[in-house]
Design a binder for these strands. Structure first.
Lengths: 145, 145
DNA sequence: AATAAACCCGACCTTTTTAGTCGGGTTTAA
DNA sequence: TTAAACCCGACTAAAAAGGTCGGGTTTATT
């Protein structure tokens, strides 16, 4: 059902939080977790995932933590979600690289249309940046014509 | 993960199939199921669900089956999906009527933005009709600016 | 050098959701 | 009367999501 996973939610919460801290401040998983009632381990794993794809940078060791890897307007919602959940596809057979073994395919009447829908949906998400999310007032430009 | 359920896929396949039959032809669940390799019971239940919300009309008894309830351009993708999967929400706390007991809410920093995103996403799906899906060439008007 | 604080990560368990199946209805054309 | 179809709740099985655990590694501090 078209719903974001908890990990994506946690990731977006953390990223938005980081964007609102002073430039260059190092944020610990622990703090985000306790501030937003997120289970520590889950928050930690999500930030590790985001670090792997470069959306945040990790600083190891004591006094370590995370910093945003880029400016808020250079981080898109589609990137965040794909980092955490893997390549996104409204339906399986439309996910880029992966093979689809769906038994309908031989005679499927909807896969072509869904290629188009999928592509537009991704553009939709790609058009929303962390900076947009951070500033609800500015979200007005996120509009479907 | 932002993916449609199988039942939604089955529903859309069936609806598109029906749209391509001669006007007023009665289509049986059995035929759609065998044509597209869909488990009969699953297909049947999905059509029953669509009938309940008026997207198709059911004809009971021998020689029974289903007919589209409306013209293809009067059936939107969001309607189909919501009929089958219930009210859709990218995140829980954004689903219209239902209550959200998420423990982040007291201090959530993203719910406002997601209200906007959710609304636009729904407009996106509402803007795609069964007739559009049926005619991939026409899908070009489904474009994000 | 030792310590503690933090990130790192695979493995696991539990719960929820999805997918599919079954049995027993009801309706209606022939 | 029969058979073909819709109808529907209940069930099971499989998959995904959510969360937890244990044992690492890295690094600032003392």
């Amino acid at each position: 059902m078209l719903r974001l996973s908890k990990k994506s939610e946690y990731g977006i919460i953390a990223l938005k939080h980081m964007l609102n801290q002073p430039e260059g401040a190092i944020i610990r998983a622990k703090d985000v977790a306790s501030l937003y009632n997120i289970p520590l381990e889950a928050m930690a794993k999500t930030l590790q995932t985001l670090a792997r794809s470069g959306i945040v940078k990790s600083c190891q060791g004591a006094k370590g933590g995370y910093v945003l890897g880029r400016a808020g307007d250079q981080i898109s919602l589609s990137e965040i979600i794909e980092s955490i959940e893997g390549p996104l596809g409204i339906v399986d057979c439309v996910v880029g690289a992966s093979e689809c073994d769906c038994v309908q395919l031989e005679n499927c009447n909807i896969s072509d249309s869904f290629q188009v829908i999928q592509k537009q949906f991704k553009l939709f998400l790609a058009g929303i940046s962390l900076a947009d999310i951070n500033n609800e007032m500015e979200m007005q430009h996120v509009v479907w014509h």
